[in-house]
Amino acid sequence: MQQGISLEHKMKYILLLPLAVMLLLLITFPTIYSWYLSFHRAVLANYFEMPFAGLENYLRVLTDSDFWHSVWFSIYYATIVSLIELFLGFSIALFFNRKMPGKTLIISLFLLPMMVSPALLGVMFRLLLNDSVGLFTYLLGGVSFLTSEYLIPVLIVIDVLQWTPFAFLILYSGLQTVPVELYEAAAIDGASPSQNLFYITVPAVAPFLVIAALLRWLDSFKVFDMVFVLTGGGPGIMTTSLSIYIYKMAFQTGDFGRATAASILVLLAFSMPLVAFVRRARRGINA
């Protein structure tokens, strides 16, 4: 009996154990290694004996205007894209949240855009938006979309097309957890549909809105494949996201020291707001 209680007592740690072991195995070495690289002159040419560089990598990153531009672009892009996707995803989730024949198929088809690898979709968009032979170019009246003036809006639209279903999926699952009784009670009180929406639905799915916003923001902040394939970060550095900046620094310049320094800086800068955000989100959920 005594043993049983202590086992139950330890259970909370035992349940966390698999996760902890996995993180320990996969994260420890790369993290230490990344910190190590960031303080060394770790370029491909002298990868075997890297001289110690102190804070040089960090200083060079912080004084690089391209770095700041990429941070700004990523924040701008992530914010706009996640706002649109949340709005559309929520609207469509509400729209689909009713009895419809063939709903499984409809929802599966709606989730389809998510199922194409962004890297490959980027390649296809090179063709579909090509100003000589592109299907979309033709359908949209022959406008050449991959020019400097339209480039950022086009990237945003592509992201929205591909990832709105993601926001939808989370919000739609969230909608399923709202108890029907709430609406029934509201109906007795004579609530209007908009009152239902703002006083019942939105508060009930608020935690899911937060989760969807957080995930979409983080992922679009890191956007890489699709933009890289489509624009290469150009023209100039106009569409260079932070991931593209780091990727080019690491693999094309071969400067792993500066690339890791840049990503550690980002992690440090964002860990504070992220902690605050997740805390608040949790409190919101618990309340």
Binding site: D131, S144, L146, S148, L151, G234
Partner: peptide, 18 residues
């Protein structure tokens, strides 16, 4: 074409072919 800021090897060929 203004879209040449997104042209690599392939796109000019498409333009030439068409």
């Amino acid at each position: 074409p203004k879209a040449c800021i997104n042209y690599e090897y392939t796109e000019p060929n498409e333009a030439f072919k068409s």
